[in-house]
Each structure stands twice: as C-alpha cells, then as structure tokens.
Design a protein around this nucleic acid. Structure first.
Lengths: 339, 339
DNA sequence: TTGAAAGCGCTAACAA
DNA sequence: TTGTTAGCGCTTTCAA
C-alpha cells in the first residue's frame, strides 16, 4: 500500500471480510485468535491506522474534549491543562484548546463545537455561560460539561473547585496570627464570582478577629501586575497605610511588592504580603511569596474524570460538586509587624 | 427539530434537495439568491451546524492542527500557543495539544495522528523527530509539518526560530561591555541543539573579546530552577568565582540568583546575571532580570502561517527557514563589576 | 440552477 | 465465528 491503507486492504490480503478486520482490530472476542493475529500482523505491516473521521461519523463520538479558558496565555492554567491532558490521554481522548478572551461569540462557538461533533464534552473554566440564544431553547444543562476553577452559580453542571472563601480566610488569619491588625485587600475584578469569594474570605477573617476594615482598605484590581502596583500605591497614599496586604492573586502581589520597594518599604520588614495561586516560580521570587496554593493538576485531573463519568453514563446531574483542599504556603513575604 | 438537525431536515423544509442545501450553505454560486436566503434562514432557525465528522470524512480534512511540545506545563510555550491559536482560528482551524514528555512512543503517536486524519498538519516544538519505524519507509519529510523553536538539523521541514547563537553572543557582549571579564555560563542540557547553540554564542563572545573561559566556568544544567541553584553553588566554590553569569534560560537564572543570595552575594552588586527567554513576570522578579527576549507570540503566528501555506499548496519544501529577531532586555540584574 | 446518486471508511445489526 | 449489508451526514460528480 503506497497510500494510507484502509480496512478493506487488510481484509483483502487476509482473505476475510472487513467486518472481521474491524472486529479483530477492536479486540472483539468474536474472532479466533488465529485470525486476529494474522490481521494484527498485517495491520502492523501495512502501518494501518483507522481513519478517525469515518470512525467518528459511525460511532458518533469524536474522542476529543474541549478545554475552554479565558486566556490561553495565562500560566495559571498550565498545570490544570497538564492534569486534564494526562487523564484525557489515558482514556483515549485528545484535548482541544479553546480560548474565549471573554468574547461572547467565542463562548457560543465553543458550545457549538459540542453540538457539531467536534468534541464529546467540555471543561469550562471561564466562569461564564454563553448568553442564551435568541430563538432556540436556551437549555444547555444536558450537555456534557464540567465547570472547573471558576464556578457558575446555578448552572446545573458539575463543578470542580476550591473553597475560595475559606482559603482567603486562612490567608488573612495567618496575617492576623502574626500580629497584624491593619490588613488591606487588593481584590480581583469584582463583581466576578471568584474575586467576590476571596474578598468575602478577607472580610470574614477580619470580622472574626474583631478587626475593622478601614475606608480605602479594599481596592479593586484586575489580576494583572500593573494593577497590583497601582493598588499598593493607593493603599500607601492613605493617611494610615496597612502593615499587611492580602492580594487576590500572586501576580498582583508581585506588583504590590514592586510598588512597595519603589516606595522604600521593605517586604516583609515594613509590610507583609500574601498572594493567592502559588504560580510557577513563586518560590523563586524575592522574597519568596507566602501564598495560597491550589491543587491545580488535581483540579485538571478531577475535572477530566468527572467529564469521563458524564460521558460514560450520560448523566450530568449525577455528578457532585467537588471541592478540593488548598494549602497556605508560608514563605518569606510575611512576618510580624514592626513594633 | 428536537435532535440535532441534519442537512436533510433543512432540505425537506425548504422543499429542495440536500445537494442544494449543501451548496447554499457553502456559499456556492450555483444557487439562486432566493433559495440561498431561504435555506440560510432555515438553518439559523433550526440552529443547524454541519456535522464535522461527516464533512471531514468526505473532504478528507480535519481542519485541526496539532501543536506538539515537550511539556505542556512549561509556561514558556504559552505565548507561542497563543500565537498559534489566534492564527489557526482565523483560518478556521482548531488546535489540538500534544505533549510528549520526551517519550518516543508519544512522539510517534502524534505523527500518526497526522496520518489517521486527526489533524491536517503539525507544529513540532520538541526538537526531535521520532525514531524511524522498523519496517516502514522512514520518510516523514512529505508530511505537513513545521518545526518551531527548537530546530532539527537536516529534517527537511520548514523552520521558525531565533538565532540562539547570536542572541547568546549579544547577552554576553552586554556583560563584557559592562566591564566583566570573569564570565561563567550555566548551560542547558547539552548536547541538545538549543543548549549547544546558546553555549556556542557564549564561547564566541568570549573569544571575540579575547577572554579565556577558565576551567569550571561552563556548567551544565537542565533548564530547571534547582539546577540553576546547584550550578551557581558550583561556580562559587571555584577558587576564582565569576563576576557575571550568563544562564541559558530565565529559570536557571532565577535559581542562580537564589543561590547567590543564600551565599551572601548581591545581584547585581557582587554578581551580574543574564537570563534567556524573558519569561512571563520576569520583569516582576527582584532584581528585574536582564534577559534575551524571544518574540514568542510571533513565533507561534509565523509557524502557523507557514503551516497554512504548506496545507494550501502542499509543498513542504517550498517554505523557507525563518529566523525571527530577538532583543536583549537590559534590566536590573546586571551592572558593572565591583572595582 | 437543481436533483439523484455515489461514496468517503468505518461499525454494527442481522443472518448464516 | 464469520460475512453481508446498511447506513453515519456530508460533498460532489453527473445528468437533467
């Protein structure tokens, strides 16, 4: 066979029908060992590979899943992707990357790829559902979708996530335990759910410790470095600046540390800073960042496992919401406040 | 239509044949405007989407490309992925992620996905070709593959890359211009091609400046943080340690800076450090890292464009090797040597 | 400009 | 245990 051999070529050479070849290749027990071996040998010899489009068309499955994120360029998703990829490939699935950039058209587009057979299921990490279609039934809830990372309240899909409120609370508790009382928060892009939860954790911890949140101690960032710098500058323009900052993610924490250094404040000497996410290389930063660590690879693996369950039993509703534990990595960016 | 509508459903409602519907939907000029509009309206109304498996089977194209890397978990690939994704989707292609983890079986597997119709083309960034098959013709060179980032000498595929030798040379020249004479190099995992090139650039710069490379000044790392630490420690156990280090990537540069700090050496006061890659957040590091910046997004876009060319004219050999420019970002980790 | 019909390569229901 | 046969949903001749 000079061109890609097909099942028919093998059948002819082996002197059997295409059905037998198909069975032998798929490991069906309805084939004698002898035939199977002959066919397998032939397949290897011809370097045969089943055509996936034909198989997909017939079986109505693509053996692909779609992983949809807001921004493929964000390193945060990497380990999740890695976890998803590993679990997917074990189960014979390929992973298609989807990137919405917060564009509603794209969000819809990826949902459509579920319907047109591009992918059998989807892991959605954008924290958003596409807006309901004008004409058609807006009921997506029977699609094989698992929400990870950023939950979508009331979506009816299975979730894999962390408890952002509790994790944020633990981060702030750590600062309180060190003796800080003037603790500020650099929030994410409120009112996004995740940003909201982390802020709520901050508030809860402060309240539980009987600490007030002074005017101006909650500033709103957008998860990017520059906003961390800007927020920290704002905080230190206050008449009574904080002695500690809890940032809603590592990147803003880095930005804050940068700004503080420029203002001549030492971390953790003058100001303690806690981040959230434990980015790759956060440990290499100076000072090493104290931060909440999410089990990212585990989130990816778990989400993919859930999706596999949904795909095999077809029951989206049966899958539970899973909450994975976080840990607070205490490193060098936090210390007791100066006396 | 409760279930996914097919072309036949539209045809029945419109009172035309499936062929006409297919033509109308694909924008063929062989359809009256009136029919086309009727069909389009119906398609929208039914929320019709062509089944990709059926189309792929018929057209023998998957409209997917495969992006294969050594490690999906490495943030370095992110912006490249982003560039590839953007260009791919503009052209109507989906991006499948491949992750080899340096496993030869997987390398072969991804090549096979080209043959079984999973993907129409591949962008290979692993720096390796799979080992030739035992039986079959080992000639891969007519497959629609573009090599990016890590070149593979003599592969016959189009390449998109940077000039690692020249970029490394520029980095070391910068140190020399600052007045350093005792300059060490933390290399990548030699004898990998990229690591080799960067080392050659180091050597060339030293030679051009008439500087010797003392025994022990070239140490071999593996691109990871820990190896940067270890290499720096080795360097500073030398009787005459260097005043500057050129690391083959940012991550090892970070590791080196870490180790130096632990040894009580200041960067850049006592030792200057230059990295390579300009990782995300390298600018947030302290001190901000002087490093060679690769145009990563551009590498991704260019590689995908090349692949699109190959896919449209079918001529792999016609595509040129493209070399993209790098820049040296001079930041805070380099300074003149102490007098 | 449209329709009828073949067939992409595979799997699976049914028959033998 | 094997073969025959009918599609999966689409595109594309070929004929009208």
């Amino acid at each position: 066979m000079s061109e890609r051999p097909k099942i028919k070529d093998i059948a002819e050479r082996a002197g059997v029908s295409v059905a037998t070849v198909s069975r032998a290749l798929s490991g069906s027990s309805l084939v004698t060992d002898e035939t199977r071996q002959r066919i397998n040998a032939l397949a290897r010899e011809l370097n045969y590979r089943p055509n996936v489009s034909a198989r997909n068309l017939r079986t109505r499955r693509s053996m692909s899943v779609l992983l949809v994120v807001r921004d493929v360029g964000n390193p945060f998703y990497l380990e999740i992707l890695k976890g998803v990829e590993a679990t997917a490939r074990e189960a014979g699935y390929a992973v298609l990357m989807g990137n919405t950039e917060n564009d509603p058209d794209r969000e819809v587009e990826y949902f459509n790829m579920l319907r047109d057979g591009h992918a059998d299921g989807m892991i959605l990490m954008t924290g958003k559902l596409p807006p309901p279609e004008p004409g058609e039934s807006a009921d997506l809830s029977h699609l094989p979708v698992v929400i990870a990372l950023e939950m979508i309240e009331g979506s009816g899909f299975p979730h894999v996530q962390i408890d952002n409120v509790a994790a944020a609370e633990a981060a702030v508790d750590h600062l309180i335990a060190l003796g800080h009382r003037r603790i500020a928060h650099i929030a994410g892009p409120l009112p996004e759910v995740m940003a909201l939860h982390r802020r709520d954790g901050y508030r809860a911890a402060m309240k539980a410790a009987g600490l007030a949140v002074p005017e101006g101690y909650e500033v709103r960032g957008d998860y990017l470095l520059e906003s961390g710098e800007a927020c920290a500058s704002d905080l230190f323009a206050l008449p009574e600046p904080p002695t500690a900052i809890f940032a809603a993610n590592d990147e803003m924490a880095y930005g804050a540390i940068h700004a503080l250094r420029r203002l001549g404040r030492e971390v953790p000497g003058d100001v303690s800073v806690v981040g959230f996410d434990d980015l790759y290389l956060s440990k290499a930063f100076y000072p090493p960042l104290t931060t909440v660590s999410q089990p990212r690879a585990d989130i990816g693996r778990t989400a993919m496992s859930q999706l596999l369950n949904v795909l095999s039993d077809g029951d989206v509703a049966a899958e539970p919401a899973i909450v994975l534990p976080t840990t607070l990595n205490i490193r060098g960016s936090t210390a007791p406040p100066r006396k």
